[in-house]
Design a protein around this nucleic acid. Structure first.
Length: 506
RNA sequence: GGCCUUGUAGCGCAACGGUAGCGCAGCUGACUUUUAAUCAGUUGGUUGAAGGUUCGAAUCCUUCCAAGGUCACCA
């Protein structure tokens, strides 16, 4: 794609040429910043009473220009915020002031300003600028957003850059212009660091396991496939970390976790992206009830670190992460919300009929497990707004979980739901290698019945388990979705810097 | 993949089938404490793409492209 400058860009190219003709360096290498914008203002406010001079060199992108003849004002912005430059013809080299007056230095350029801090008549702390230097010439203008600071300190913005496609494709422009978008990704970083801090403090060891895997597993999803040329080996991008992490418990670690990227070759939606960030942990000598307590505390501590409160607003709903969260069995939740007790219909045929009786036209030929899952996602999931543990899932949709003690149909598994979304999944991990092998076989048969691609059987995982795996609980959580909740962003794309989009067409 | 909605100047938006317009930005000029600065003037368009209907299409029809939403798929 070759660049076709539009009219505005053409004008800027001409300005760049004029600057070069005047021996002004467009992209100098050396910078001499002493203060961030915010630090400069703070330093002045700290000294204001004594009247001492505060000399600064500040750098940033020009976000506002107000030319007023022989005096001009600019706002420059760095990551810390904005600071105003007051530029007087008297204070500056004449040639430099002309660059400003002739608009050869204009909006979106990066500049370096030398000067002393002062307060203007209108009361704004500013840099009385004695020298101004271009740091980087902007050839493509950013969308213009004007800001008005209200009496109560809030900021009203005029002009918008809202087209979602352009914002996602050109995230750099989105970030440069939309301050609140920058804030979202600051919070995202805090989510991850708070999560890591919590787990480290709980004695977990952070590990890294392969992304390129010869056998994918740990979830039911289609993988992305790739190929290693030299080894002539087909490889898959991981769909979960589960099986590799649990092998480490065989190796003798008591508690491990990983935060990283999973890849699933499935549909894209407001809560699905082909690559997404997952956290999984596994902890020996506990079970899914122990995991519940841990997860409640973890999410509480993350919410506090990110927002200073365990309350959150998401899509206009108030969400309260304060522990303890509601706990209800899947069976009860489905019975309460659909009127169907799936334990009264223990095969696919009769459960399908029961669904038809309540007016649900599910297709015939689905497995019993899938029908239960359908009941969950259609009748229960949308109603679970506050964080809720749904416990005890049917065995044949949960191949890695240990049986409950009270019957043969259910396993010790929970999922967390919040704001109508699945947020996490946990088991009392199955550590019986004979039972595990049987479950793999059962799953394989189920998938073959459905003419679906069978999940490959991971012999090495069974080999590991045969050495003995301690009883343990495991947990996985979508970091992107948690970030959505804590930043009140309605789509996963809004918490991913570079969400997946189709190829840009010429 | 199905259905619904959208696509007009750099950005945000108007225009009944009848001359494509407004605000901001841009450009020219004025202004030494402005802050959505103000004032005067002014440039900018193959209306997402390609066909079709019509005397006449941004507007109606068809196909395609892209995005958003929704459903399906997604333990």
């Amino acid at each position: 794609m070759t660049w076709q400058p539009n009219k505005l860009e053409q004008e800027r190219l001409e300005k760049a040429q004029q600057l070069s003709a005047q021996q002004v360096e467009l992209y100098p290498a050396r910078v001499a910043r002493t203060h961030s914008a915010n630090a400069a203002i703070q330093a002045f406010e700290a000294q204001e009473a004594t009247g001492d001079t505060v000399s600064v060199i500040v750098c940033g992108r020009i976000r506002r220009i107000n030319l007023k003849g022989k005096i001009s004002f600019m706002h420059i912005e760095d990551e810390s915020g904005r600071v105003q430059l007051m530029l007087r013809a008297n204070d500056l080299d004449e040639k430099v002031y002309d660059l400003v007056k002739d608009k050869l230095i204009d909006m979106d350029d990066f500049v370096e300003a030398h000067g002393t801090m002062m307060r203007t008549k209108a009361g704004e702390v500013s840099v009385q600028t004695s020298a101004l230097r271009l740091l980087s010439k902007s050839l493509s203008p950013l969308p213009v957003i004007k800001q008005q600071v209200n009496d109560d300190g809030t900021i009203t913005e005029y002009g918008e850059f809202t087209d979602k496609e352009t914002r996602y494709r050109q995230r750099y422009a989105d970030l440069a212009v939309n301050h609140e978008v920058r804030q979202v990704f600051v919070k995202r970083a805090k989510v991850i660091s708070a999560m890591r801090r919590f787990l480290d403090n709980e004695g977990f060891l952070e590990v890294e396991t392969p992304i390129l895997q010869p056998i994918y597993g740990g979830a039911a999803a289609r993988p992305f496939t790739t190929f290693h040329n030299q080894l002539e080996q087909e490889l898959y991008l991981r769909i979960s970390f589960e099986l590799y992490l649990k092998r480490l418990l065989v190796g003798g670690y008591d508690a491990v976790y990983e935060i990283g990227r999973d890849f699933r070759n499935e549909g894209v939606s407001f809560k699905h992206n082909p690559e997404f960030t997952q956290m999984e942990f596994y902890k020996a000598y506990t079970d899914y009830r122990g995991v519940m307590d841990l997860v409640e505390r973890m999410v509480e501590s993350i919410a506090l670190a990110v927002n200073g409160t365990t309350q959150a607003q998401f899509k206009g709903q108030a969400i309260d992460f304060t522990a303890p969260w509601k706990r209800i069995t899947l069976r009860d939740a489905i019975r309460e919300n659909s009127g169907i007790d799936y334990m009264e219909y223990r095969d696919a045929e009769s459960l399908t009929q029961a669904l038809h009786q309540i007016g649900d036209q599910v297709e015939r030929g689905q497995t019993w497990g899938k029908l239960v899952d359908h009941l969950l996602s259609k009748y229960v999931e949308p109603k679970l707004i506050q964080p809720t543990f749904l416990l005890d899932y049917p065995r044949d949709i949960s191949p890695f979980a240990k049986r409950v003690t009270y019957d043969d149909f259910h396993v010790e598994r929970f999922e967390i739901f919040c704001a109508g979304m699945e947020m996490g999944n946990a088991f009392t991990e199955l550590n019986d290698p004979i039972d595990q092998e049987q479950r793999f076989m059962d799953m394989k048969r189920l998938y073959e019945d459905e003419d679906d691609e069978a999940a490959p059987l991971d012999e090495d995982y069974l080999r590991a388990m045969r050495f003995g795996m301690p009883p343990c609980g495991g947990f996985g959580m979508g970091v992107d979705r948690l970030t959505m909740l804590l930043t009140n962003q309605p789509s996963i794309r809004d918490v991913l810097l570079y969400p997946h989009l189709r190829d840009e067409q010429q």
